[in-house]
């Protein structure tokens, strides 16, 4: 029986000793946020599912060597971030939507994606409209800024942890976060 008050690090150590329930509890705690972090970054649901599996397989297979030298969350998102960066590099051609401007009037691919049923103006509520705007705006951030923003807003990491997860200095992480928020506000103002 897993104590839900146990820390992530303690759960990971229990899992390393063979406690499958500890892994399930860890997964349950972080499933949604990790998936959304990946999904908001790569946007392709299939790719996000592949990455999700890769990340958690890596977590499970690292159990025997896991040492709680840093917070589990930081380690988890470091794994997730680097898997994502590698995936971006490998699949840049068909995943990167940011810079896709193929000369048909300047609209980026993100603007030309088929509309999600949730965002059909006739049926969506005001809150859904706002959610749609926010997610679209996040999707338009440059990769590094988007990762920094999502690590903060979605994963709840501190600036220091973002720096650790993305392999940058504290100042760089802070700067990316600041630029991301500034750009988000601009985009949301435009949508409004």
């Amino acid at each position: 029986m897993v104590d839900s008050a146990e820390s992530d690090e303690a759960l990971m150590l229990s899992f390393a000793r063979g406690d499958a329930a500890a892994f399930e509890e860890l997964y349950r705690r972080h499933e949604s946020r990790v998936f959304r972090y990946l999904r908001r970054n790569v946007r392709d649901p299939e790719a996000a599912n592949d990455l999700m599996q890769e990340v958690w397989f890596a977590v499970a297979r690292s159990a025997a060597r896991y040492q709680p030298t840093a917070r589990f969350t930081t380690w988890l998102y470091t794994l997730a971030h680097h898997r994502m960066v590698d995936a971006f590099r490998a699949r840049r051609d068909h995943l990167s939507l940011d810079a896709a401007n193929d000369g048909d009037g300047g609209a980026s691919l993100i603007d030309r994606l088929p509309a999600d049923p949730r965002s059909e103006p006739a049926v969506e509520a005001e809150t859904d409209q706002d959610a749609d705007r926010v997610l679209r705006a996040v999707g338009q951030l440059p990769e590094e800024q988007r990762a920094a923003f999502l690590l903060k807003a979605e994963a709840g990491l501190s600036v220091e942890q973002i720096a650790a997860a993305t392999g940058t200095s504290f100042e760089t992480a802070k700067s990316r976060l600041r630029y991301a928020r500034h750009k988000l506000r601009e985009l949301l103002a435009e949508y409004a």
């Binding site: 063979g18 499958a20 892994f23 499933e31 958690w56 926010v134």
Partner: peptide, 28 residues
């Protein structure tokens, strides 16, 4: 952002979730 993200109700597919948990049990 969190409200918007939560409203989207995203999650991994059932197959991926099952594969991850199965891998966890195998490693355990």
């Amino acid at each position: 952002y969190r409200r918007a993200s939560g409203a989207a109700s995203d999650g991994p597919s059932a197959a991926v979730r099952a594969a991850i948990l199965a891998e966890g049990r195998r490693i355990a």
